[in-house]
Design a protein around this nucleic acid. Structure first.
Lengths: 320, 320
DNA sequence: TTTACTGTGGCAACCGTTTGCAAGGGAGGA
DNA sequence: TCCTCCCTTGCAAACGGTTGCCACAGTAAA
């Protein structure tokens, strides 16, 4: 069995409280004693049991990070950024995947409660109301969702969508397909909102769709049939699936249809044609989310991060 | 504050032990009492504190999953499979990323100790010796690494490499470049072993390399210069980077050089040319690893899973 | 010398749960 | 009627730490 605080105490003839203080309040113990304790601890391979410590202090020094789908390349950079930021603050991040299922999401949050000091909720599929209820048990920071009074990290999707639409308009596109994401996605709503407000465009909405390659693949026929010369897709995965589906139908991108995605994930950069996309500041968002959780103590600060249009090869002039 | 077992006990006039038993040993409590307790618990929104429970029982019903790089698309399917398998066994999986850094890996394992019942170590970068030492504190299942006496899930890399080399030989390739992965990678060693034993081939080794797109990109010039007509890459990411680098040098794949990867990740399927690769059974591996951890209690069972060659567009006949 | 601190370390309660032990009550058999 | 036995529940000690309080030096100030 692993050594406990008692073993260390016995080994160097002091009370457990002295050992405890050696680790959690070193200034309260005499340097000589302290080094004796440290030596004994090192000798026995003692490491404080974080779970036990959490029981009395209420702080676990862990945080949870819940994402809808780890397999979506958008998330890993965010996750890595959060983990490394947390590491710098002496925290650890536990990641869990909900499989896009709100029930799993809720269950996961419940499990995290009491095992972590807070949860980073990325692109949640739960309703605002539910999230607010769960927030009574554990502090949240939500990413890509706006909930009143709750700290959140937002990516400026509206701005990105605007840039994308302007880019398409500049290339002569008028009839544009909007391929949205899953129900309950804040991002999807933002996109649609901006598009609807932009004058002079002829929009066709498709959705809801799975936010994956498969989702894009399956709407490809409808998109092809609707007469749009350009597509704004929910995310890069959808865009990629769409291009795949389109080229299976011998429809060239960007020659016959232009496609823009969101996120700027790796496969989009490797794809032929390379994907034009709205880059989301995932790394920054991961970092900010951690900081917000640690600083705010649950108070509702909102951080909005800018997005940027990256023009590559999947968009071109509209054909007449 | 969240309700504790005491609140529930008080609310329905029984002792805490009765409440405890209602949840962890229901058959020991009178049905009438049980339902009273359940009602009160529900009323107060009581949920057992898993950390506190773990303190006495020694079981957390959590397991850790450590991967070298979540951003490598190879891992997410494995992670998802492990999570869903674990969920079916009433367990939860916490994922952490080491950034390919052995020190972070060790630190993470230490953090997990006592917070989980076991750790799934995927493609570890730590030395065998270190892993064995750490195994004294927490049970492991290692994936893609063979360590004596330790339960492990292996993917039959040797078989896959053999298939790949046969495929290349069949296409007339003789001079083949082997682009390996990071130091300490078992997979890399397996590949090299098989290649070295295959007669009639003229092999050139390149390595160690980062197991990423960047790694592939940076060896591209050397590979191009070495005169090989085909490349076996450590994984798909490296293969993709390589193709990218090669095409930047106006070298066509597969016309001038054939490339085979390992893993069968999504970007490889979307890439142009679509990547020929050795598919790794990541999903199966994730499931098996969970089962092994739960069943074996640390005993050293070894499971080997088959791989399969998937021929797509990045390989072709050798040019004379 | 007394007084008043200050630095150090022991004591014990507590965090939320589990669990071995024992006691009380009722039922059934002798 | 008395004795067992079983069912149900309470009691209290753990699990591995933390922390407020108190006591015991020394030390410096009065």
């Amino acid at each position: 069995m692993a050594a406990t605080i008692k073993d260390v105490a016995r080994a160097c003839g002091v009370h457990v409280s002295t050992v405890s203080r050696t680790f959690s309040a070193p200034h309260l113990v005499n340097p000589a004693t302290r080094s004796r304790v440290l030596a004994a601890a090192d000798d026995l391979g003692y490491r404080p049991n974080r779970a036990a410590r959490a029981l009395t202090t209420g702080r676990t020094y862990n945080m949870g990070l819940i994402v809808a789908d780890i397999a979506n390349p958008f998330f890993p950079p965010l996750i890595k950024a959060a983990q490394s930021q947390a590491r710098g603050r002496d925290y650890h991040v536990f990641v869990a995947d909900t499989d896009e299922d709100p029930r799993v999401e809720e269950e996961l949050i419940r499990t995290f409660t009491k095992q972590v000091d807070g949860v980073l909720l990325c692109s949640p599929r739960l309703s605002n109301k539910m999230i607010e209820r769960l927030a009574e048990d554990v502090p949240f920071v939500v990413v890509n969702r706006r909930i009143k009074g709750m700290p959140s990290v937002l990516m400026n999707v509206a701005q990105g969508a605007k840039l994308a639409l302007e880019h398409l308009a500049g290339l002569g596109h008028r009839r544009i397909a909007l391929v949205s994401g899953p129900i309950g996605s804040w991002t999807s709503n933002e996109m649609q909102g901006v598009a609807a407000e932009t004058p002079g465009l002829d929009l066709i909405f498709f959705g809801p769709n799975q936010p994956t390659e498969a989702g894009g693949l399956s709407v490809a026929p409808e998109v092809a049939a609707c007469g749009a010369t350009a597509v704004l897709a929910y995310n890069d995965l959808v865009a990629l699936g769409l291009i795949e589906g389109l080229s299976a139908m011998e429809i060239g991108v960007p020659d016959q249809i232009s496609v823009i995605g969101f996120d700027d994930i790796l496969p989009g950069r490797l794809n032929r044609p390379k994907l034009t996309t709205v880059a989301m500041p995932a790394v920054q968002a991961g970092r900010m989310a951690v900081d917000l959780l640690l600083q705010s103590g649950g108070e509702g600060a909102t951080v909005t991060l800018d997005t940027a249009l990256i023009v590559r090869e999947s968009t071109g002039r509209a054909q007449k």
